[in-house]
Design a protein around this nucleic acid. Sequence first.
DNA 1: CTTTGTGAATAATTTCACAGCG
DNA 2: CGCTGTGAAATTATTCACAAAG
Lengths: 237, 237
Amino acid sequence: MPLNRRIPEATVARLPIYQRLLLELVGSGTGTVSSEQLAAMAGVNASKVRKDLSFLGSFGTRGSGYEADFLLSQIDRELGLDHDWPVAIVGIGNLGRALANAPGFTSRGFRVSALFDVAPELVGSRVRGIAIRHLDDFEEEVASDPPAIGVIATPAADAQSVAERMVQAEIRAILNFASRVLAVPPGVLLRDVDLSIELQVISFHLSHRHEAGAPPAGSQLAMGPVLGSLGLAHIER
Amino acid sequence: MPLNRRIPEATVARLPIYQRLLLELVGSGTGTVSSEQLAAMAGVNASKVRKDLSFLGSFGTRGSGYEADFLLSQIDRELGLDHDWPVAIVGIGNLGRALANAPGFTSRGFRVSALFDVAPELVGSRVRGIAIRHLDDFEEEVASDPPAIGVIATPAADAQSVAERMVQAEIRAILNFASRVLAVPPGVLLRDVDLSIELQVISFHLSHRHEAGAPPAGSQLAMGPVLGSLGLAHIER
DNA sequence: CTTTGTGAATAATTTCACAGCG
DNA sequence: CGCTGTGAAATTATTCACAAAG
């Protein structure tokens, strides 16, 4: 068991998929699960599942498979979902509200700790029990319960200034849903999501579907929304 | 100019990024742009940009760069954004509304052609001028203006049945935002987006930031939300 | 007899480095 | 000269195939 301490990025990108599947399986009482089953559910092939899981350690039992709840706990640990990550969301429009309510934002490791907007009619109302604060009070509010992750769901024009205030407030990781390339200093982890990139990838495949009948390579395991960010987004030291 | 007629999937995933950057550049009056500039904005390196663009043809001018508007038109053509793709969105909650209003869903190739929900208080109201119809009328409504792409933004529990109705209605491509693995027949292009996957990837990097100071490989150009889908999602012939 | 874990083989992607064109 | 376009090299990711464990 060599246990490489460097997990390939491609594997990291798939761990959340396995995590979610295992959550469902454990929830519905599954005891053990094979790489074959996981692979079918994830839409990948079984050796990829085994290879991915082998980077975490040897948690399977030959002849029977993986114990679902134990495997889940190992993946959670590897993904850092056994920590508590307070998440602040700025921009409580439709998208911000959707994020605040998304199961993935409110369970297993993540806790929506603060909501901000500038619209007077929003400030003071609550989403899932959390009061929306005015962005003017951002620094003050986050001081008491410093968020680990900042989510930007503002109009594009406001995104950069929000990012700067997040950085100023010592937030080390930013998830950016605004369609705007952001500059952040080295040391800040920035990831951009563009909701429409998948639409364009679909458009590509639709308009090429007649040429050469090969199934699109990314079909089963989709490459998700991607948006370029200024090349500054790495974790320091 | 060999002009490989098979564009790597990794390149296809980046074309929307270049597309969006070029839109901005053209909008702000830029005439020519170098691979170096595009690379800096996209957060990738210059040879990757040149390699990516070379799959579309030789559109650059040595010594000066690429003519922004011409390059944009070539990328649009390659991505199929010169077609008109009617998009039907089912589930007009916060997420559905956010999608209906997203710039990427309403410009360049895409046209939100129909909105569906089951909530009586929503049916009849309009989002960006498009009336929300009751899901019961789905088949009838889409018959008159058949959507090329169906977007599922419903609660997880409803996603599968919506997918089946879309397939029945001859929709060949589905973009699924529900956190639920969907089964679709071969021939239907299915892509899943999970809004929280990036959050988990961030969590991974945050909780590993102390070990070995290497910048996370996916930092500059983020791998986006990904969710496994049942292995059925390919375009036929 | 089943299913994991993993080296080895293959394939895809990225990066390098430079010839060649404007 | 400056910058593209692209083979070749390096790196990363996937798949194969099978020995070993339960």
